[in-house]
């Protein structure tokens, strides 16, 4: 997978190659013209290219629209997220990928002007159901943020925070166990086991982000949402987080928003490309990176890599 996408990258460096691909796609029929990230007019239809369905769907978003006041931020997005799969959401800034991510655990609820329509279900249950408490949902769909945001507490208390508020541990020994297992899974235990009482903020940026991941998996979620988790980290810390994602996807579905095409290619099984609130193209990662079907996807991928 990784090799394939890298090859694609090299191919696209070649201007001639790009040119032919562009010409090939010009013939396809589209309904409206939108500017691409370079300001050129490109045809864009409401139909998502590729395959929004997957074999083993766990979270299903159907015709989701999000409005911030009068601003229509997400337009009619349908997407399935499979069990234990890593799906990457890519696209230029402001394209709605983070907004879509935040719909998946109702973090948009806290924004007063935000309005979500359509249907999102988790394991068959509607997550926007009036009777469902978002608190319960967020325990099942955890989130890791762009900037590491450990609480101003000790490392131990950071990880123990979730289990404590959800009452997951019966006694201190059980809580200790959860904390240690979570740190272990996040690959942080070795580095911090002698200083669990130090403040979480005393760790380095990469360690802080792994602490935030440990904090998230301590609640034992089913889906983990990651909003550009590596954008504030150096390449070494990024590599560690990516390795971690590889391990975590054995147990969790992971939805990651990223600006790094290479990262999307390395960690994800499927890729969804967003543009101006539309979900333009979804497909298996190697297909999208080697042979994008939509002009916008191709523009974005080649522009970024080439």
């Amino acid at each position: 997978m990784v090799v394939a996408s890298r090859k694609a990258a090299y191919h696209h460096k070649d201007g001639e190659m790009t040119e032919t691909l562009v010409k090939k796609n010009m013939s396809a029929s589209r309904t409206s013209a939108v500017p691409n990230y370079r300001g050129q007019q490109v045809e864009l239809g409401r139909e998502t290219v590729g395959n929004v369905r997957c074999a083993n769907p766990f979270m299903v978003a159907e015709n989701v629209n999000v409005f911030y006041g009068d601003n229509h931020a997400i337009k009619d997005v349908t997407l399935e997220i499979g069990k234990k799969e890593v799906i990457a959401l890519i696209g230029p800034s402001g394209c709605g990928k983070s907004t879509f991510l935040r719909c998946l655990n109702r973090m948009n609820d806290s924004i007063e002007s935000a309005r979500v329509t359509g249907n999102i279900s988790l394991d068959g249950g509607d997550i926007y159901d009036k009777t469902l408490d978002p608190v319960v949902l967020r325990a099942r769909v955890g989130m890791v943020f762009q900037k590491p945001n450990p609480f101003p507490k000790s490392i131990y208390d950071n990880v123990a925070y979730g289990p404590r508020i959800h009452g997951l541990a019966g006694d201190r020994a059980e809580l200790d166990d959860i904390v240690h297992r979570s740190l272990e899974r996040a690959g942080l235990l070795k580095e911090v086991k002698d200083r669990l009482d130090d403040p979480g903020t005393s760790l380095s940026g990469g360690q802080q982000q792994r602490l935030c991941i440990a904090r998230t998996i301590a609640v034992n979620p089913e889906v983990i949402l990651m909003d550009e988790p590596c954008s504030a980290l150096d390449p070494i810390a990024t590599a560690r987080i990516e390795d971690l994602m590889d391990e975590l996807c054995e147990d969790y579905a992971i939805v990651i928003v990223t600006h790094s095409m290479q990262q999307a290619a390395r960690v994800s099984r499927r890729v969804a490309y967003f543009h101006l609130g539309y979900l333009v193209e979804v497909d298996d990662t190697d297909k999208v990176f080697t042979n994008p079907h939509h002009k916008l996807t191709e523009d974005y991928i080649t522009g970024r890599i080439g």
Partner: peptide, 14 residues
């Protein structure tokens, strides 16, 4: 910082 708020809410805090 609102990141603290988001972090806590994202873990399912009330």
């Amino acid at each position: 910082p609102s990141a603290m708020r988001d972090g806590a809410l994202g873990l399912g805090s009330t």
